[in-house]
Amino acid sequence: MDAAAIISILDATLRLSTPLLLACLAGLYSERAGVFDIGLEGKMLAAAFGAGAVAAVTGSAWLGLLAGIGVSVATALLQGAAAISLKGNQLIAGVAINMLAAGLCTFLGQQWFHQGGRTPALGPNGRFSTIDLPFAHELSGIPILGPIYAELISGHYILVYVAFIMVPVTAYVLYRTRFGLRLRAVGENPKAVDTAGISVNKLRYQAVIITGLLCGLAGAYFSIAQGSGFGNNMTAGKGFIALAALIFAKWKPLPAMFTCLLFGFLDAAQIRLQGARVFDIEVPVQAIQALPYVLTVVLLAGFIGKAVGPKAGGVPYTKER
């Protein structure tokens, strides 16, 4: 494997990690606040559809992005209403959201665009184009660093950069702001937060809205950046890989980035590893596809470290009277 091949596989890793990272950080806010979210997949799918549909109709990627975020936040609020205000089962709420998104996106897509659930292919303005960072072309001549800057770091969609910027931002918000402290507290011991005179439900709603926002970015990435238009079941289980990554990263932002990069790398590598041999035995592609899930199961079982989630996760908060 030469340098160009390595750069191209790392380049693909960045592209494939982006939606994982956005969804993973999205889940991080919600789960750190004590709301389990297995509905990341559904919110992403809904956002992908909303973004694809609006971008197709208006021809503007930015309006599409806005619509994607709007749809995703609305879905998150529905889930939040069930899980926070009505004190319903958070897991079941997530299952319902996933199913609702899958059904509605296909149904509305078919009704509105008559292309078997797809949204029309987008024109050049309807989707985001890649951004060349300054001097990328000029610097590409420098050995090693030049190609890395020009090929690997430059030339991605804006959402890729947003995703990676969100990592330090999330870390800062979580560990260095009052909101972050309260957010973490509400996931560990909501009663303490309540006693301090802060509304548990309001904080959880804020967290859920941020989750919706980030899922919106992740979903839009599928339909109006990476792809050009929405396709049936476009997110293809990526929401669950993001959930796996979140657990794998033990609900922390920086490890979340590395885990998403790892899972993205596995995704990028499986195409190249097709037919690869280890000790003369052919490695099945499916084994690599299943690896993120297997790793998560192994980690959860405590065989490599231990993943313990926020203590109050999954329990709706009931104020004592």
Binding site: A83, G88, A93, A96, M99, G103
Partner: peptide
């Protein structure tokens, strides 16, 4: 797909929005 929507709503209303 209409049935999938009904099914999702049943789960939402009976399971999570009791």
């Amino acid at each position: 797909t209409v049935v999938v929507i009904i099914q999702a709503l049943v789960i939402l209303f009976t399971g999570a929005m009791e």
